[in-house]
Design a protein around this nucleic acid. Structure first.
Lengths: 227, 227
DNA sequence: TAGATTGTTAATCGATTAACAATC
DNA sequence: TAGATTGTTAATCGATTAACAATC
């Protein structure tokens, strides 16, 4: 088929996807894994890979990989495999990380500082464009090279920035309040590091990263007889 | 039934559980959520809760909560609900976090520093007892109040410590090497912050926390028409 | 052509939810 | 007793895996 037509079909399919075909969340999580792995691979001289290769490298089953991609169209050539750079570019487009994505961070504490200073962010096309805090000893200063603004100015400032992604690294006790303000300010997706459950309106998505919770799950798998 | 007999039965059930009845991983993750929520609640004056209350507070369905607990025995009283302190104590025992759990951390960078400095750790009964790094400018110094040791001494030092849990905050390129050493040193479960897939032998468990990957998944849910 | 590997369908597996008898 | 709420069974739902025809 004409490659142009094919692209148009794919664009259309992706465009109507989120609401309709309903991509499973585990598929999206794996897609992020493929994306990371392919990014590494792209700087090597490997040009083509098979789904079996993906299984070997990521531990995700080959059939699973092909099934995951099938939600979004056709990506490989039977008997040949997948072109690394092409696959990377198309997955990046699906995940909307082909262009740089601006992010705001709330909470200029230790963790916030580590995240802003993390070089991997830029590598994967995210950019923390502004930091907010409520502590007068921090407001007006910088976190690395990013300005720290008064959280009271969140809505005002994001009116001009128009950022859709926020990272929350405030203490659990303040998290719900902060999230309410974020939603008010036009934020659509939130990555929450505070160890607490958050309530958000329909249409806003939250993901939760909890260090303690991960340790707790791991702890279960220790043998109870020893120690 | 005699509460003593009941406890013995429960202990026995938990003892043989991991290998046999096979508790679903999602159940363990939710158990960690219940644990966190009950910990908060325990410092209030609430004495009894219902599964409906849990649903309201955590967003996890009441039926799901009861089903999750059912893998481990009986915890509530029909018509009454669950005793907060009792439930907390029993979930803590299941997850093996009733006693303090020692943890070692590899990688004294920004992220490692944030984790060591995080007060929530102690609150949830984890304690980072030693930090390792390969950088001569760090070895022999301290991260907060914890000694930083040469990673070359990992096996030697853990011979006396006998720690089973490790947190990895080294760059992706070094992660597999570090993990191999950890396994050699008797570590049984690993929390990995490096953005890379790790290979471990049977019997060692890894969980993966990846900031970038979480952002990438969230990014998918942004509307593509705007921006 | 023969061998490799895809995309997709159908079968399997496992987790969530609903419903309700048992119990306080 | 009547109302509330559990623990568990059975029904539903959804995700993973296997298998294979189509294709390079």
């Amino acid at each position: 088929m004409d490659p142009f037509i094919q692209l148009v079909i794919e664009a259309w399919r992706i465009f109507r996807m989120p609401k309709e075909t309903k991509v499973p969340l585990p598929t999206l999580e794996r897609l992020a894994t493929y994306f990371r792995y392919l990014s590494e691979l792209a700087s090597s001289d490997v040009e083509t890979i098979s789904s079996a290769h993906i299984e070997e490298a990521t531990g995700i089953r080959a059939a699973q990989f092909r099934k995951d991609l099938s939600y979004f169209g056709e990506f490989g050539r039977p008997g040949i495999g997948y072109g690394v750079r092409d696959l990377l570019r198309r997955i990046a487009r699906i995940l909307k990380v082909e262009k740089e994505q601006p992010v705001i961070l709330i909470g200029a504490g230790n963790l916030g500082s580590a995240l802003v200073g993390y070089s991997g962010l830029r590598k994967y096309n995210f950019n923390i464009v502004a930091v907010f805090d409520s502590n007068p000893n921090k407001i007006g200063y910088k976190l690395w090279d990013r300005d720290i603004y008064d959280i009271e100015r969140l809505k005002e400032i994001n009116e001009s920035l128009g950022v859709k992604i926020a990272v929350v690294t405030v203490p659990a006790a303040n998290a719900q309040n902060v999230v309410d303000r974020l939603v008010e300010s036009g934020i659509k997706v939130i990555l929450n590091f505070a160890p607490t459950t958050l309530k958000v309106p329909e249409g806003v998505m939250v993901r939760h990263v909890c260090f303690i919770q991960e340790l707790t799950v791991l702890s279960f798998f220790l043998d109870s007889d020893e120690v």
